[in-house]
């Protein structure tokens, strides 16, 4: 019986945060795909080293912008009260569903990109050139020119394996339930709301 308790049990699995396995890639780093699951499922990227960087900025609101369906940039604010950043618990940043957890995680982290140029992306780039995660994450630290040290040192991930076509609905519902429960900042998707 796949009732709410079943979904809550899956959510608890998604709370088990671990380090992101990285290996050297020339002068930089890349995700170690041999140490990450290569199956379908739901994954979450977490800010896991406490909230000191967020607190130091004395955020009451996080100001972000995103493109709407017409390619216009829409500013919006996120009340930090809505996010669990006043504690030292890991903070969920992005939750996704995928047929290949390792591959999708690598695509979202974009460890070969130091910084997404501020507002240089258009709507078509939003999904094709830059990952949703990095587009929002990079806006949180406008004063940094290289985000990869933060990604390497401050982020973790978790996952729930739900392989096979028979789990496509579970992956869909679980991903949405997790976004709503953890309120993962980088999942806010403005351009879908303007229709």
């Amino acid at each position: 019986m796949k009732d709410q308790k079943y979904f809550d049990a899956l959510l608890n699995l998604l709370r088990k945060v671990q380090d992101i396995p990285l290996v050297r890639d020339g002068a930089g780093w890349m995700l170690d795909l041999e140490q990450t699951p290569r199956e379908a499922g739901v994954f979450c990227i977490w800010w896991m080293r406490g909230s000191i960087l967020w607190k130091d900025r004395n955020f009451l609101q996080i100001k972000l912008s995103s493109a709407n369906a017409d390619g216009e940039f829409i500013p919006y604010n996120v009340d930090t009260e809505m996010l669990d950043i006043e504690t030292n618990n890991p903070v969920a940043l992005y939750i996704g569903k995928t047929e290949d957890i390792g591959l999708r995680l690598a695509e979202h982290l974009m460890l070969d990109v130091k910084k997404i140029p501020d507002r240089q992306y258009k709507l078509e780039d939003f999904s094709s050139r830059y990952s949703r995660f990095r587009v929002v994450f990079d806006q949180l630290f406008p004063y940094l020119s290289d985000l990869t040290p933060l990604i390497k040192n401050y982020l973790g991930y978790s996952h729930v394996k739900l392989p096979g076509d028979e789990n496509v609905y579970l992956r869909y519902y679980l991903r949405n339930y997790a976004v709503g429960t953890f309120r993962s900042l980088c999942n806010i998707d403005v351009f879908e709301l303007i229709t």
């Binding site: 979904f7 047929e99 339930y177 806010i188």
Partner: peptide, 29 residues
């Protein structure tokens, strides 16, 4: 309120996971 856009987004996802309405299903991965 436009300032409630993030709240609306999170509530939408939360309700989707609770209600699991059949017409919302997509097949993206």
């Amino acid at each position: 309120d436009d300032r409630l856009v993030p709240l609306r987004t999170f509530l939408f996802h939360y309700a989707l996971g609770n209600l699991r309405p059949i017409c919302n299903i997509d097949f993206g991965a």
